[in-house]
Amino acid sequence: MHYAVYLAGEIHTDWRDSLIAASDGLPVSFTAPVTDHAASDDCGVAILGAEPDKFWHDNKGAKLNAVRTRKAIEEADIVVVRFGEKYKQWNAAFDAGYAAALGKSLIVMHGADHQHALKEVDAAALAVVETPEHVAQILRYVTEGTLPR
């Protein structure tokens, strides 16, 4: 069995690379949002034209990014949402809620300091973890039925 895994959330660290490396050899494929922060922020105005008002600048970008995000979440078997330490990721919370509403298997990743703020998001998840290695161990268990060595 092959699983499509969407990696949502925080884009300021290399957690995706760590997870993909730790999942090497498993029957999984990964998709993700555009992780180039500048490209993600400015795609709307770069493609559709400049906006003098920051609200409309951001609105255009959010809508174009949603084309990719919605399709990836809808096609995913498993959605992993990472909440980082430095920023409040409202987009990550939205992705988690969208995945939960679609009945996707949801794995949420964050540090212990975010536990209270994310308690409702955590309650919708099938697993809450702190590291990419935990996610890889879950993927190994789900695909192979083996426990960590």
Rank of each mutant, 00 (worst) to 15 (best):
Q115C: 06
P132E: 03
K88Q: 07
H57R: 15
D113A: 06
V34F: 03
A62E: 03
E120G: 04
A99S: 06
F94E: 03
G61C: 12
A21N: 12
Y6A: 07
I78R: 02
Y3I: 04
A125K: 09
I138Q: 05
D17T: 13
A123W: 04
I20D: 01
V128W: 00
H116Y: 09
A38Y: 14
V45N: 11
I47A: 09
A46S: 12
L7I: 03
L48V: 02
D53P: 07
E130F: 06
S29M: 11
V121G: 01
G111F: 12
H114P: 00
G25L: 07
V135W: 09
W15Q: 10
I11C: 05
A66N: 06
L147Y: 10
A127P: 04
V129M: 07
G49L: 13
A8K: 02
G103A: 12
V81D: 00
E51F: 02
C43V: 13
F30C: 13
F94L: 10
A101Q: 07
D41K: 15
A8S: 10
E130Y: 06
D77Y: 12
E85T: 11
H12E: 15
A123S: 15
K63G: 05
F83S: 02
E75F: 03
Y98G: 12
A76F: 01
L102S: 08
K104E: 13
W90H: 13
A76E: 03
N91V: 06
T35L: 14
D122Y: 01
D24W: 06
M1I: 07
A39L: 15
P33Y: 07
M109W: 00
A39S: 15
K88S: 09
L64V: 04
A136E: 01
R82E: 05
F30K: 09
G25P: 07
S105N: 08
G145W: 09
A93Y: 01
G44T: 05
E133R: 12
V135K: 08
V121W: 00
A62K: 13
H2Q: 12
T146K: 15
G84L: 05
Y87N: 08
G61T: 11
I11A: 10
V135L: 12
N91D: 05
L126T: 11
V80D: 01
G103M: 13
P33A: 15
E85Q: 08
H57T: 09
T146E: 15
G9A: 00
D113E: 08
L118T: 11
N59G: 02
D53H: 14
D77A: 10
V34L: 09
P148T: 14
F30S: 09
A100L: 03
L106P: 00
R140E: 13
T131S: 12
L118H: 05
E85R: 06
K54R: 14
V67S: 06
A22W: 02
V80M: 01
T143E: 11
A127R: 14
H57V: 12
G145I: 12
K88D: 11
A93N: 04
L139G: 01
